[in-house]
Design a protein around this nucleic acid. Structure first.
Lengths: 192, 192
DNA sequence: TACAAAAAAATGAACGTTCATTCATTTTTA
DNA sequence: TAAAAATGAATGAACGTTCATTTTTTTGTA
């Protein structure tokens, strides 16, 4: 049997189409009509699921960010060593950015432009708490540098987005060895 | 006397207006009419300086990127130690991102969306060679990790853009001390 | 189970607005 | 006074959104 309702399928198709078109053409060149066409849905149908274009991007952003966060913490449980915990999370994030390129590219575009509104941005940040907690513990244990979590994020996590971007533009190839080197660089920047 | 021609002034005003409006509203919500109004120029005048809207953003991108690169290498001369050279360049870049926020935000938006075309992107990259050369020397001297320059850039330079973004959203404050800490983190990630 | 009536979902043509761009005219400069 | 620069109203295409109509699904009844 089919556990996904028909209307959920349409919403999913719309979300997917939005991600793909915004990635390839940018938000400014992604009309609702094209989204509808790619999702194989009529133009009016979009407005049964989303209030308007702004609401559509907001919801897509929140959806993708939730999927990202879920992925980031798979196989992770609090309580283990800070080193190991960070490695698990970091490699999950790297895997997400390299496997789910479409989603990751979309997030990178949203995080660097005013196409999503402030409340949705806040909403998207919610799920990162376990990483912040881990860092807090790492600071107490004098393993992690006693600096703002924004600094830790900037130097250890954010760089992955750049590598993904270069990879996507076929300027640079991220191999298995590269990933281990990258992880080392991330860790070296935040460890004491 | 006035060494800047009148028409150069108009072009400058258009460039400035474009940066400001794209930063605040996004490219999709920046009509030519608003750019003209903010630059105190008639709509048609834009087309004396730029072919069309695409050409306008491309040129603004290239202009700003050139200013950025120039700034990045001020007070730098090849030949000094790798450590010192990198510190000078890194701190220049940090200063640019924190002092010339408008320009830096615009670059970050362009670098993460398809609003500028590929040739302009290539053009914008041209001026970074001295940093690549420095890194190459650092690798030979076994001071810098023997990894792709994209990796070095991702972990040492790219994070500054994240900090700038957070600073701009008033989520995080970058103080003098922070900057020194950040520099340490950057250096730790790329040094052997 | 079969069918019809009611409700819900989906459609897509139509609407009004906004936008990028043009060009006949005016203003400024040489 | 000729040339160059600037203007801004006009144009037509494209867009987001609506809504009268159609299609599909659900419900109620025998």
């Amino acid at each position: 049997m089919n556990t996904v309702s028909k209307s959920q399928k349409k919403r999913d198709a719309l979300v997917k189409a939005t991600i793909s078109l915004v990635n390839n053409n940018g938000f400014h060149a992604t009309p609702m009509s094209k989204i509808a066409k790619m999702a194989e849905v009529s133009a009016g149908t979009i407005y049964l699921y989303f209030e308007n274009k702004q609401d559509l991007v907001n919801q897509v952003y929140i959806d993708v960010k939730a999927a990202f966060s879920k992925f980031a913490f798979k196989d992770y449980e609090e309580g283990g060593s800070v080193n190991k915990g960070f490695e698990i999370i970091w490699k999950n994030i790297a895997e997400f950015k390299l496997m789910k390129v479409e989603e990751a590219m979309f997030l990178s575009q949203c995080d660097n432009t005013p196409i999503v509104d402030e409340p949705s941005r806040k909403e998207g940040l919610k799920h990162l708490q376990p990483l912040l907690d881990l860092w807090e513990r790492g600071k107490k244990e004098e393993i992690i540098k006693p600096v703002s979590p924004y600094m830790l994020y900037a130097f250890s996590i954010y760089p992955i987005a750049f590598l993904m971007n270069m990879q996507e533009r076929e300027i640079f190839k991220l191999t298995k060895e590269n990933i281990d080197e990258a992880y080392e660089m991330a860790w070296n920047s935040i460890k004491i």
